[in-house]
Design a protein around this nucleic acid. Structure first.
Lengths: 273, 273
DNA sequence: GAGTGGTCTAGACCACCAC
DNA sequence: TGGTGGTCTAGACCACTCA
């Protein structure tokens, strides 16, 4: 946690914690005095408090959080300090600011946000929405290599999903997805088939699990016979292997996914800065 | 350009452009009044001015730019406004802030910055520095498909470079690089072989061309016979094809590169937010 | 100690949105 | 019209670097 121990651990009442406006708020002095080992500025502590609220589900995906002024009053700091905390959370795509309306908890549930993490782009033509085809959804015991990456024990229950993504009738992506069984108890093939909208939106609205970032490891691999059949390519064809580990609040890994992409008419786009 | 016409086009003297400190600076009024079609806030205009200075070579890579206070005086705005402009440029990796020292123009020339754009990571062990082996460097006439992407005319002179990157004695990456011949007149195989340090550092220090961002298109491809020989893999082996277009200031493309990566013991890492 | 960036506050006003 | 985020200013003080 970013919060320095012993400081601003609880929300404060609206009454200002300092008597006169100027010279220097006692709050600051306290913040700096307490900061012996790893000093963290006030706005980072505020950021941590907002983050804690998000993690605790105080505000759900798509909802607004309190206004900057209200948060400033609640935490006993100036609006500018709250603003800087929110700025960072917005830069990390955890919050979305909308002038005149408020600040919203980011969500995967909106149509425009579909495939927010999918970097596949067609060589020609607009990015037509991909069709989904569920192939399998079963509960398993986690193999060691999966358990390790998701901070589970080998043998813990996991849900295994296999699906195809189609573009213009052609299969383009074969996804194998693993989720911790304990977190997604009611998740079944029926539920997946019924659901409209983004996959991560389902996890959000039905299970309250919000993916906030992911790491991908990308390789080139050869299609084996089974995969080749599913993706309608020749065995041995080169495919992009995209191994994704997705995290929710608190850097907790909650999804492991391995996508095999046919990059004959699509590519994986990346922007470097 | 971001700068609104008719406003803050020239640097101002130190004397403040407004008589009394408060109520509302005329500068602001002017900025807002002039902004009929596409309003851009002051700090974005300041950002544009700093960017123009970078593009014009007013401050070179690795050097400091003037302090926030000096820039504030020069542009006739407050330190906070300059700060916000610099913040954005730092977020885009064009500037680097160092507390107590100053704000520096980002550079590829430092050892720690080597391979800033290379996302290749070994499966095990620390990221040992890659060895370079120059295979070829020749001047050519640009084929149409290269000219198109680099905003050149087909037949314009280009420099073509082929090299290998080794990790632990094994070849891992085969790079084909194209540069506009007109921009890099003195670039020869000798120059490349003599040079120590990052490739982009050479382009920076010797030719004053600074890469600030890049786009990559990633595919899986099969190794042909020639490539297989160079990378010491079997013909038909799956390789990662990374096509990179790099840009300097003003979104001007100045390098096209195609890397073929052997991902048997390495992977391409990507973080999604 | 002087100079740099970093934090925090307070207050004014603007742009946008909904009622 | 009131509330929200967005911009800008001014001034204080802190953290860091270097001569």
């Amino acid at each position: 946690m970013d919060v320095n121990p012993g400081f601003v651990l609880e929300c404060r009442p609206m009454s200002p914690p300092f008597p006169s406006p100027h010279p220097v708020t006692p709050l600051n002095e306290l913040a700096r005095a307490e900061a012996t080992p790893a000093f963290s500025p006030l706005y980072r502590q505020i950021k941590g408090l907002i983050l804690a609220g998000l993690q605790a589900g105080e505000w759900k995906a798509g909802e607004t959080i309190p206004s900057e002024m209200e948060l400033a009053g609640r935490f006993g700091v100036s609006q500018g300090t709250v603003r800087k905390a929110v700025d960072e959370l917005a830069a990390e795509n955890l919050l979305v600011r909308r002038q005149g309306k408020g600040t919203f908890v980011a969500t995967h549930a909106e149509q425009q946000q579909q495939f927010r993490f999918l970097r596949l782009t067609p060589d020609a033509g607009a990015s037509a929405t991909l069709g989904r085809q569920l192939l399998d959804c079963r509960r398993q015991r986690a193999p060691a290599w999966i358990a390790r990456q998701m901070n589970l024990r080998a043998g813990d229950p996991v849900i295994e999903i296999r699906r195809l993504l189609h573009s213009g009738g052609e299969p383009v992506v074969l996804d194998d997805i693993w989720l911790p069984g304990a977190m997604f108890k009611g998740l079944t093939a029926e539920r997946l088939r019924e659901h409209r909208g983004p996959f991560y939106g389902l996890l959000e609205t039905e299970f309250g699990v919000h993916m906030i970032r992911a790491q991908e490891k990308i390789r080139a691999v050869a299609a084996d016979v089974e995969v080749a059949g599913l993706l309608q390519v020749s065995p041995g064809s080169p495919l992009l292997s995209v191994e994704r580990l997705s995290f929710t609040y608190g850097d907790k890994p909650v999804e492991l996914r391995r996508g095999l992409y046919n990059t004959t008419h699509h590519f994986y786009r990346n922007d470097l800065q």
